[in-house]
């Protein structure tokens, strides 16, 4: 920190107002919560409300249908399918991004020269326009003539990914990893520079091997970053839409249809506002659950930080 708190703390002439400190937090938070209320909570509440109606926007009519939208959603089984796909996508993107991101960060961190260069290379996809890159990737995954099939696809016997109900989701997940690994790398690189040098040196003097040094010194000290990365990548997995919409459209036969895509398909593409709202509800519930998990995981770290 270049700014020393002492330098800005000239003696305060203004008398302390007893009331102000009590009100201040609310004044500071109010604009943000107001905006979140308008642009997130209110629309989400509207979605809740709409689950009980059949709404025809075109005709401008609304009809109360009770729980019929829920019954239909359960009947078709699409919501369950999308829950499964979303979970699978999370498994296919969060751990690989974290493991690969950490490995690459460790590799770059161990370099004597060229660190900036490799950071830049791995960060490029983070800065790219995803909708355009999805088109390039779709093209790379195209059966037979695409680069994937022409190179390692044939070598490992997995071809025509986007047309396959088994491989379409992994194809999208590969792009998801490609896009976010650079971000994970930079987060971990930042964390690695903060690992106390003297501890590493001490471990080395004690004759600890590379793995032992990593496990006993590096890994514990990058713990908060690991939690942070886990949260960010999970949030992304819950929201993934652009790549799926461009590369697979959720198919073939819903094999890669995540909840976010299902919500769009029912609510917007099929004009079924009620049915789409049911999916929104499921997503909101998941978002709350994820929030709870994150609060539990970080509460301990934060208590440590609030000393």
């Amino acid at each position: 920190m270049s700014v020393s708190p002492a330098s800005v703390l000239r003696p305060i002439t203004m008398p302390r107002v007893g009331f102000a400190p009590l009100v201040a937090p609310y004044v500071l938070v109010a604009p943000l919560l107001g905006l979140i209320f308008i642009f997130a909570i209110l629309p989400a509440a509207l979605a809740l409300f709409l689950t009980f109606f059949e709404t025809d926007i075109l005709a401008g009519t609304m009809r109360f249908v009770g729980t019929a939208n829920f019954a239909r959603a359960a009947d078709r089984g699409n919501v369950l399918n999308s829950l499964r796909v979303t979970f699978l996508y999370t498994v296919l993107t969060v751990p690989p991004s974290m493991i690969l991101g950490l490995s690459i960060a460790l590799a770059i961190n161990g370099l004597r020269r060229g660190r900036m260069f490799w950071q830049a290379v791995y960060f490029l996809p983070v800065a790219a326009t995803l909708v355009a890159m999805s088109i390039v990737w779709r093209w790379m995954f195209v059966g037979r003539k695409g680069i994937i099939d022409q190179t390692f696809g044939q070598a490992i016997g997995l071809t025509d990914w986007l047309n396959s109900p088994v491989l379409s989701l992994p194809a999208v997940a590969i792009v998801g990893n490609w896009q976010q690994i650079g971000f994970v790398v930079i987060l971990y690189l930042a964390a690695l520079t903060a690992v106390p040098r003297h501890l590493l040196e001490a471990a080395r003097v004690d004759g600890a091997g590379a793995w032992s040094r990593f496990w006993h010194v590096t890994w514990p000290s990058i713990g908060p970053t690991t939690v942070f990365v886990g949260i960010i990548t999970s949030v992304d997995a819950l929201r993934v839409f652009d790549t799926i919409s461009t590369m697979t459209g959720g198919g073939p036969s819903r094999s890669s249809q995540t909840l976010a895509h299902l919500m769009w398909e029912r609510g917007i593409y099929f004009f079924d506002i009620g049915g789409g709202s049911v999916v929104t509800l499921v997503l909101l519930a998941l978002a709350l659950a994820a929030t709870a998990v994150q609060r539990l995981l970080t509460a301990r770290l934060e208590r440590a930080g609030t000393r």
Binding site: K145, L162, N163, T248, G249
Partner: peptide
Amino acid sequence: PALSQAVFWGEAARLFQAGE
């Protein structure tokens, strides 16, 4: 070829234009 929906519009034209 058997093209899935998402791939179809981009691929059908490309396949013909590329002579495939």
